[in-house]
């Protein structure tokens, strides 16, 4: 009993000291430390960093410097006698079709699956980040203007949302990508640019709506009134006062938009309207491997596994960010 009292007193004392000694922390630092306590989010980050490093090192070609981590070229190294090799570990289970050169086996054209997976990671990451960056710029700008200024911008945005919401996202992307495939836009980088455009066109509306809602709920608050009273221009209010305050839900929504975009690309490639072969992408690898699925499942299972792991990693990170940035948000 006595010891308990002393500890209580000690704790109180320590707490008082803490109030004085504690350094000031911003909301962002608080959020960061909350994020670091979330094991699933950390695991997600580790996976993402690992995949990013592998994707970058797959092949580096700057000036005279050339380095390739991938054992083979994913497109040109076709070793037909060595087609449909199985991963080396299957040798332990009695597979006769393994080759030490092809660690994860080879596909129906004798291309190394490991190398194709590494280069596929590049496509997945690029498709995850680039369209989402475009969406962020367009969506945040339109949403901010619509929310703060109202009027015709707002009306136009809301009518446009009605139409976009009547299309399921994927349906709209499929229509855009499939119909514009043979235009000049659809030819650049094997159709990669068209996929960026398709994803961006469909998803900026959601972000704009989120932004608009946030701005609407904040724009009559005292701190905005105060800023206006001291003569801040509308642009300054939007950028310096409103924007930092609406950033948290926007970040969370972006964290989930990245795996969403990656999934869209994989689905499009799987349906045969994504990036053109022979560019290796995980979705296309699944589609190509499906033909030989009953002979050997590895050309399909391995990219399917990669997609699953990366999407889960981003989801865990997104969940962690949401909990860290706004502990009140549920779900």
């Amino acid at each position: 009993m006595a010891t308990a009292v002393t500890t209580r007193q000690q704790q109180q004392h320590a707490a008082e000291l803490n109030v004085i000694a504690r350094k000031q922390r911003s909301l962002w630092k608080d959020a960061w430390s909350r994020l670091l306590r979330n094991k699933a989010a950390i695991a997600g980050m580790v996976v993402i960093v690992f995949v990013a490093v592998v994707a970058i090192l797959a092949e580096i070609n700057i000036g005279g410097f050339h380095f390739r981590l991938a054992p083979f070229d994913p497109v040109t190294d076709q070793n037909t006698p060595k087609q449909l090799m199985e991963p080396i570990w299957t040798k332990a289970f009695g597979s006769k079709f393994t080759d030490p050169a092809f660690v994860l086996g080879s596909d129906e054209l004798g291309r190394d699956i490991l190398s194709r997976l590494m280069f596929g990671a590049r496509i997945s990451l690029v498709v995850g980040f680039v369209p989402v960056a475009i969406v962020f710029v367009i969506g945040a700008t339109v949403g901010m203007l619509a929310g703060y200024l109202g009027g015709w911008v707002d009306n136009l945005l809301m009518r446009f949302t009605d139409i976009i919401y009547a299309f399921p996202d994927l349906l709209f992307v499929i229509i855009i990508v499939a119909t514009l495939r043979d235009t000049g836009l659809g030819q650049i980088l094997g159709g990669l640019i068209l996929i960026f455009v398709g994803i961006a066109v469909v998803s900026w509306v959601g972000l704009a709506r989120l932004m608009r809602g946030q701005v609407l709920s904040l724009k009559h608050r005292e701190f905005v009134e105060a800023a206006r009273c001291v003569g801040a221009t509308p642009i300054r209010i939007m950028l310096r006062h409103l924007f930092p305050n609406v950033l948290a839900p926007i970040i969370v929504s972006i964290a989930f938009a990245i795996p969403g975009a990656m999934l869209t690309e994989a689905t499009l490639s799987f349906l045969g309207v994504g990036i053109r072969p022979p560019t290796p992408t995980w979705g296309a690898m699944i589609l190509e491997g499906f033909i030989v699925f009953s002979t050997t499942p590895w050309p399909v299972l391995l990219p399917a596994f990669c997609i699953s792991i990366v999407l889960l990693a981003f989801t865990f990170l997104g969940d962690g960010l949401r909990d860290a940035l706004d502990p009140r948000m549920k779900l």
């Binding site: 699925f293 399909v300 299972l301 999407l311």
Partner: peptide
Amino acid sequence: ATVGTTIPGFVTAIFLIY
């Protein structure tokens, strides 16, 4: 719930078919 919302249907389907 997390796995179900994250993993795309065609990937789940592939594992099931396998």
